[in-house]
């Protein structure tokens, strides 16, 4: 194999300016990914409005209608009877994170189809770091949506203990990370944008309804022990409970352990799936080129 010669006369040595990346460069990369995710969210006004309207519809219409039907007994972390609206608020926070996580999955499928994903994947930073940056960016946008929802809910009389708004932040971050990681893994499996409707039907809705987001699990157990078992295997169940307890300044350790475990599992799956040497991406024929 011979090297095709240079066209330009030059010296024997060419300087290639490439000092190793330090912490500052890593943070610059994270900031860039977060800014882009934020700009995309702001630019997509419909996404912002629907992310707010969806939980408010559940809170103000569904909850009002079902208040009398779905009575809630005193269960931890509640110390007294609570209104149904109060009960479902943590579940609606989880719903925002769930939809947002899947939206992030959608955006990755879209990015891949449109080619934008390549600009991320050809960055010299480690692939795992790029994916984690994208996750953190997605979760940050989700958390902002949750706080806007809680702010609006406050004016409709759904008030949490003041410190709960602070305590819930790490819970939202962990739960959001888990759901975004799941979305990222799914995005590596989905080949085309059209297949995303399948995710809605087979992932989002089952996860949401087979959880304590809308009704306590003891009620589910009374009506269907099998469904109760399914709910217990649903990671979203633990995300909702983690948020619920955190809003009342408590930690549900089981939920914390499950959410952390699932986050690591889904994240590892996503990193493997997007790793060019091992992942699923390698098996897909590129749609952007000819061969």
């Amino acid at each position: 194999m011979s090297t095709l010669p240079s066209q330009k006369a030059q010296s024997d040595v060419v300087a290639v300016n490439a000092p190793a990346f330090g912490l500052r460069q890593y943070l610059t990369c994270l900031k860039g990914v977060m800014v882009r995710e934020g700009l995309r969210f702001v630019n997509q006004r419909e996404r912002f409005i629907s992310s707010l309207v969806r939980p408010l519809v559940w809170l103000l219409i569904f909850a009002a209608g079902f208040r009398q039907v779905l009575g809630v007994s005193i269960i931890p972390p509640y110390k007294t009877y609570v209104l149904y609206e109060v009960y479902i608020t943590p579940g609606l926070c989880g719903m925002i994170l769930l939809f947002s996580g899947m939206q992030s999955s959608l955006s990755m499928v879209y990015d891949r189809e449109m080619g934008n994903m390549r600009t991320l994947l050809v960055s010299p930073f480690p692939r795992w770091y790029l994916l984690v940056s994208k996750l953190i960016a997605g979760v940050t946008v989700s958390i902002a949506q949750v706080y806007v929802f809680l702010f609006v809910a406050y004016f409709f009389g759904i008030k949490m203990p003041p410190l709960g708004y602070l305590f819930v932040l790490p819970a939202l971050f962990l739960a959001g990370l888990m759901l975004c990681a799941l979305g990222m893994f799914l995005s590596s499996v989905i080949k085309q944008l059209e297949n995303f409707s399948g995710v809605m039907n087979f992932v989002i809705f089952p996860m949401y309804f087979a959880s304590p987001a809308l009704y306590p699990l003891w009620r589910v157990q009374q009506s269907s022990p099998i469904l109760y078992k399914i709910c217990q295997f649903n990671p979203f169940t633990y995300a909702v409970e983690l948020i619920r307890f955190a809003l009342y300044e408590q930690v549900d350790w089981l939920s914390l352990a499950v959410v952390v475990g699932c986050t690591l599992l889904f994240l590892a799956g996503a990193i493997i799936a997007y790793d060019p040497s091992r992942g699923l991406m390698n098996r897909k024929q590129d749609t952007g080129g000819n061969a």
Partner: peptide, 27 residues
């Protein structure tokens, strides 16, 4: 430069370029 267009159409020219710069650790 890929064959398929890879600019984010919803972002400005500056936003597209500064995003790429950050992916290379450029402040």
């Amino acid at each position: 430069v890929f064959q398929a267009r890879t600019l984010d159409l919803d972002l400005s020219v500056y936003q597209n370029l500064s995003y790429h710069a950050s992916l290379h650790g450029i402040g």
